[in-house]
Simulated assay, not measured.
Amino acid sequence: MLSIASLILAACAAPPSLVQTELFIAGQGGYHTYRIPSIITTLRGTLLSFCEGRKNSRSDSGDIDLLLRRSYDGGQTWGEVQVVADHGEDTIGNPTPVIDRDTGTIWLLLTKNPGYATGEQLMSGYEAGTRTVWVTHSNDDGETWAETEEITDTTKKTDWTWYATGPGVGIQLQSGRLVIPCDHRKQGSQRSYSHVIYSDDHGATWQIGGETSLKNNECQVIERRDGSLLLNMRSNHGRNRRSIATSNDGGLTWSNISFDEALIEPRCQASLLRYTSVTQSGASLVLFSNPASSERERMTVRLSRDDGATWAHSRILHAGPAAYSCLTVLSDGSIACLYERGDADRYEKITFARFSLDWLTGES
């Protein structure tokens, strides 16, 4: 989120048009496929681009590592790939970072499961293993990371089977609370639910927050100017529209869901992010990205001027096959979207797209 001073500088500093760079390409670097992008801008302005490196196939299970590339110049150049977490032949992924503005610590929430377990087994309650919740952190802008630590006991109920953090990013509320959007399934049911976990002690401990009604899945969250939270969810209701819920108690409980009729989706992850700070006067700008179609294609970025109630502007980043995405705001006011795309297939590469607010609104 940007301060007023940053926004004033942004008009001159931000790039006038769309620039796209391939960061991870399938089949290169020792991995069959790269998936599940996540990007965040640190307090020092460093860009951290995370993804899963899937060793042997594009499957959601198997030997999957958590990878990172960093940029110190707004995405013009990138460092080599770092392995943040490698749990042998098991799956470690679903990256969801959040930055504590009070301490500067970058927390990274992850999920893990046995690499030999299929998604169907994990969702039904697999005797030999389940999805577990993990966390790591960095205090040096992502250069090094602590050993991953399991936090399943306080963040997952005993009758939950499948579990996913994010994917995308978490947020810090004005109160200081760290909030991570998640989803889960329950034992004996194939129905999915969205929920959040949170920390009120700067990441030292994590707790389960509220969950939504059924048929909601991967989600992202923002804090609105009135202090309420808006949860935007992948929907399994068969309407090809995003599900929406709100919270007035920091994510401990959630309202009944509604549907944002403007946000068409193909049942896919999406990104939701504030552009302006909740404490800033004037327009309350919110960004959203997803494949705006009934198929996984047409990666589109939208802008809301009223806290996500309506969507005033949209631009297409890639008209062809596309899937998961994650947005961030750079320190100069420009916007970046890290997303999956390809020419013949949506998982050919993960692309970093950078553009200005003027480009998004059609004013450049």
Rank of each mutant, 00 (worst) to 15 (best):
P15C: 10
S17G: 14
I25V: 15
Y31E: 09
S38L: 03
R44Q: 15
G45D: 07
T46V: 15
F50D: 00
N56R: 09
S59T: 06
G62M: 03
G62V: 03
G62K: 01
D63L: 00
I64P: 00
L66A: 10
L67H: 01
R70M: 13
T77P: 07
V81E: 11
V81G: 01
V83N: 09
D86P: 00
I92L: 14
G104V: 07
I106S: 02
L110E: 08
L110Y: 07
Y116C: 08
T118L: 08
Y126W: 15
T132F: 05
N139V: 14
W145I: 06
T152H: 09
T152M: 10
D153T: 12
T155R: 06
K156T: 06
T158F: 13
D159T: 11
A164I: 08
G166I: 02
L173C: 14
Q174P: 04
G176A: 12
R177Y: 10
R177Q: 11
V179M: 12
V179G: 07
K186G: 07
S189F: 04
V196F: 11
D200N: 14
T212Q: 06
T212A: 07
N216S: 13
E218P: 11
I222P: 01
R234K: 13
S235M: 01
N240K: 08
R242V: 09
I244K: 00
N248R: 11
D249F: 08
G251F: 11
G251E: 09
L252H: 13
T253L: 05
E261D: 15
A262Q: 15
I264R: 10
C268M: 02
Q269K: 12
A270Y: 01
L272W: 01
R274G: 00
R274W: 00
S277I: 00
V278A: 09
S281P: 11
G282E: 03
A292P: 01
S293T: 10
R296C: 08
E297G: 01
R305A: 15
W311L: 06
R315A: 15
A322I: 02
Y324D: 03
Y324Q: 05
D332L: 05
D332M: 05
S334W: 02
A344K: 14
F352I: 06
R354M: 08
T361P: 01
E363H: 13
